[in-house]
Nucleic acid binder design. Sequence first.
DNA 1: TTAAATGCAAAGAGTTTGCACTTAG
DNA 2: CTAAGTGCAAACTCTTTGCATTTAA
Lengths: 141, 141
Amino acid sequence: LNATEVIAALKQRGHRMTSQRVAIVEEIAGAKGHISPREVTKNVQSKLPEVNASTVYRTFELLEEMGIVSHAHLERGAEYHGAGEIDHVHLVCSNCGREQAMEAVATEPLKEAISGHTGFAPDFTHFAISGLCAECLARSQ
Amino acid sequence: LNATEVIAALKQRGHRMTSQRVAIVEEIAGAKGHISPREVTKNVQSKLPEVNASTVYRTFELLEEMGIVSHAHLERGAEYHGAGEIDHVHLVCSNCGREQAMEAVATEPLKEAISGHTGFAPDFTHFAISGLCAECLARSQ
DNA sequence: TTAAATGCAAAGAGTTTGCACTTAG
DNA sequence: CTAAGTGCAAACTCTTTGCATTTAA
C-alpha cells in the first residue's frame, strides 16, 4: 500500500486532500499487516492532535468503498489491511492472544469442500481463525 | 440443551434458582442454534419486564464457565450455543446476511493443513466464516 | 439469617451521526 | 466562492462494574 498512489487515486476521484487525510493515509500505508481505526487515531493524533476519530472512521469507509482496504473481524473488533495484499488469514491464539498470518492459498481445499457440500463460497480472510498457537499447544500437553 | 438439566446442574453447584435465572435458562435452552445476549434480554423481558441485561450477561458468563454454552464471534458481536451440540461452523453470507451452520468435521483437512504448515491448531467454530451463499453467488454471475 | 443474585446507574469501548464551521480547489 | 471535509457533541450499541437492595435456601 503506497501513500502516494492512494492520494493520487483520491485526487482523481475529485476528493480534496486535507492535512488530516494525508496523515491518515500515510499512517495506514505505513502500517504492516493490519491496523485498527483506534491505532490510526492514536498515532495520527501524536502528530496532528486535533484529528478526530470520526474523521479516521470516515476515511476508512471511503478507502474501503474505493477498494483500497478491506476489513476483517478479529477478537477485539475490526481491523483493516490493504486490499491488494496477498490474501491471508488471521490466526489468533485463544490462549496468549498472539496473532499470525498465513497465506490464504492453503485454505483452497476447505473452500472446495464447503462449496461442494453447501454451495457456500467461503472467504477465510474476513474473520480471524481462532485456535492454539504452536507454543501454547505444546505447553498444554 | 435441556432447561431442566441445566437448572439441576446449577442447583448442584449450589446456585440459587431465581425466577429471572429460570426464565433466562429456558430462553437459552429453547433457542435453536445460537442466540445472542440481546435476543435473550428482549425475549425474557417480554415475560419478566424487570430483568436487566446485566443479569443476562452474568448468566451467560456462568453457563460458559460451567461448560454448558460456548460463544462464537459473528458479524454483529458474540452469540452463544450449547457446548454439547455437534461442533459446527457458522457460515454468514456477506451479501444477504443469511446464516447457516455446517458440521465442523468438514474442516478437518484444513485443520491438518494449517497445523502442518504453522503448528497452529485452529478452531473454526469460534469465528464465523464469511462468504457468499449459494443464492447470492448464483445471482452475482 | 445471610450471602448470592439482582437492578440500577454509571462507565467504558467502539462506532455513527447531525450540524455548524473550516478550507481546498 | 462553495461544497467537501472536519471537529465536536451527542447518541447508540454492546458490555462490564460497583453498590445498595432483594431474596432463595
